[in-house]
């Protein structure tokens, strides 16, 4: 069973995001780049399935050269090979264009399963998984917390509002990972040493015969809307604090 995991490199979630001088992109000078946390669940699940079923795990990333570090992290966790579609302009590109580019890189690998995170914690879109599935003509299973691989099929659990759906799909399929799927392993020191020698193929958009021109663009970035200054609730005892808070919520905020 061959498994591809698509990974994105994103700013660490601790990062204070600042808007760059062009007003359209973020300032990248102070950013620690990491593998998207949801993609880590995908890598982990792929490695667990590989252990049970055999086959290869190939990680695919798209973006500037720095994405190599995240691909090496996945290799250090245990993936066999990596492919980087290297292009400086891909970070922040239209997710639909990225999905098309990933599809072109993934297709020749003929995977049985494609994993990725259910969304990246930067653009928070979650568009790439279902779009990639469409471009690859595969079914998609989004935001899953449990995966069981059968013969030519896969069964997953997908939590939605107030219930969890059990879905079954034929393979090959695209599966996007949600927190709760597993506990991703850390790369071991021997793993990190081995990763340096594992194959990492670099491709360009020209190799894939595609460009990154998308149909959606960010016209401007703005800081989040400012909130009015808060009010400190007064009171000497817990009872007074609670009474004054309840009064404020009823009479001022009118939310209860």
């Amino acid at each position: 069973m061959n498994i591809v995991v698509c990974i994105k490199q994103v700013p660490d979630t601790e990062t204070q995001i600042k808007i760059a001088g062009d007003g359209k992109t973020i300032a990248t000078d102070d950013i620690k780049w990491v593998m998207n946390p949801y993609d880590e669940f995908g890598v982990e699940e792929a490695l667990r399935i590989q252990k049970a079923k055999g086959g290869e795990v190939i990680v695919v990333g798209a973006g500037p050269k720095r994405v190599t570090e995240s691909l090496r992290t996945a290799l250090a966790m245990g993936a066999d090979k990596a492919v980087l579609i290297e292009d400086d302009g891909l970070y922040g590109a239209d997710p639909l264009a990225v999905a098309k580019i990933l599809a072109a890189a993934v297709k020749p690998l003929s995977p049985d399963i494609v994993f990725l995170g259910m969304r990246a914690v930067d653009d928070d879109a979650g568009l790439v998984g279902p779009a990639l599935a469409e471009f690859l003509d595969m079914p998609n299973l989004s935001v899953v917390t449990k995966v069981e691989v059968g013969e030519g099929s896969v069964t997953v659990q997908r939590p939605v509002e107030g219930q969890t759906l059990v879905l079954e799909a034929s393979l090959p399929a695209v599966i996007s990972a949600q927190k709760g799927l597993n506990e991703p392993r850390y790369a071991s020191l021997p793993g990190i040493m081995k990763a340096k020698k594992k194959p990492l193929e670099v491709k360009t958009l020209a190799d894939l015969g595609l460009d990154k021109a998308g149909k959606a663009e960010i016209a401007a970035l703005t800081p989040p809307p400012a909130r009015a200054a808060g009010k400190t609730i007064s009171g000497e005892t817990a009872q007074e604090l609670a009474a004054n808070l309840a009064k404020a919520l009823r009479e001022e905020a009118k939310v209860i």
Binding site: P95, A99, R119, G126, L127, P130, A131, K215
Partner: peptide, 20 residues
Amino acid sequence: MQGKDLAGRLAAKLDTSAAV
């Protein structure tokens, strides 16, 4: 959950893009 899942596949089918 439904809409977030549908947007990408529909946009790909219609050769357009989406804002979620």
